[in-house]
């Protein structure tokens, strides 16, 4: 009977540990790569307000006016605040997901408790150190099994609930940066071209002056193009994060399968490469 009970206990433990001793490392790693990528937002060298100021200064240049040229950029500041709000909400979600995916989170330490129990003087009650250690290690496994199972269940729930709003937010973050901001920069390029066109075409000016204007024009266009490329690379970061989260969402019931881990690892590598590329652009 004693042996039967012992066998049942072993079977229960094996069942619990096999189903709930999850390795959420790949979820955590994808989340961390997403944070690394999305946080490049903070290093972007251009925003709506800067565009507004540049356009305003361009008007001053056209009018040859350096005094009393006031730039009103209230709407563009608001556009930046909204974009930043969407960015920070998205980033915070990944911080939350990273925290709860850490394997060491439920790696509870009971050594101190075991030591206290084993060496404590409880009068007539004497505890064998080996027994205490054995019970303690079983308790730790069960504790981890239950908390891991609970954790996995909650991660599934969060990823499922978050996917739709997250995709929407990433879409809007991309719309504002690679859609609206790059659109404004195209307008800016057109304004610059219109300004330089008349100067470069003015035959009353010397060839030297017209050549200098041409050089200035190409330099300014090239500076803006570099900034647009930076935003386009960031847009790829956003899209890769969105794809990665969709993979996670679609395979949420198979969190331990190698295929899913492999797919998420690919997204993670892409994000790291894109982040590296953005680092190079900012140098």
């Amino acid at each position: 009977m004693q042996k039967l009970l012992s066998n049942i206990l072993v079977l229960i433990l094996a069942a619990i540990t096999s189903t709930s001793c999850v390795n959420l490392k790949h979820v955590g790693e994808f989340s961390e790569s997403s944070i690394e990528g999305i946080e490049k937002f903070e290093a972007l060298s251009y925003n709506f307000e800067r565009n507004c100021t540049d356009e305003c200064l361009q008007k001053g240049i056209e009018k040859l006016k350096i005094h009393g040229q006031t730039c009103v950029c209230t709407a563009d500041k608001k556009a930046d605040s909204i974009t930043t709000l969407i960015y920070s909400s998205t980033r915070d979600y990944f911080y939350g997901l990273t925290d709860i995916s850490k394997n060491q989170l439920t790696n509870y330490k009971t050594e101190e408790l075991t030591q206290t129990l084993a060496t404590g003087d409880y009068g007539s009650l004497s505890l064998k150190e080996t027994d205490v250690k054995a019970y303690s290690s079983i308790s730790t496994i069960i504790l981890r099994a239950f908390t891991d199972g609970y954790r996995r269940k909650k991660i599934k729930e969060y990823v499922t609930r978050a996917n739709e709003p997250l995709q929407t937010l990433l879409h809007f973050l991309d719309l504002n940066l690679s859609g609206n901001l790059i659109g404004k920069m195209e307008v800016q390029k057109n304004s610059i071209k219109s300004f330089y066109f008349d100067l470069i075409s003015n035959t009353e000016l010397s060839i030297y002056e017209r050549t200098k204007f041409t050089e200035d024009y190409f330099r300014r266009i090239s500076e803006l193009t570099a900034k647009q490329e930076e935003l386009e690379t960031y847009s790829k970061v956003i899209k890769t994060i969105a794809e990665g989260h969709t993979i996670l969402y679609n395979s949420i019931s198979k969190l331990t399968e190698d295929e899913i881990k492999g797919q998420l690892a690919i997204q993670g590598t892409q994000l790291k490469n894109l982040s590296r590329s953005l680092n190079n652009k900012n140098q």
Binding site: I82, S89, R161, P165, L169, F172, N180
Partner: peptide
């Protein structure tokens, strides 16, 4: 383009609250 960027807040409000 700026107005579109501002309107994003209205369109993303529900998603922001959910996330």
């Amino acid at each position: 383009y700026t107005q579109s960027a501002i309107l994003v807040l209205d369109d993303a409000a529900t998603s922001l609250a959910q996330i």
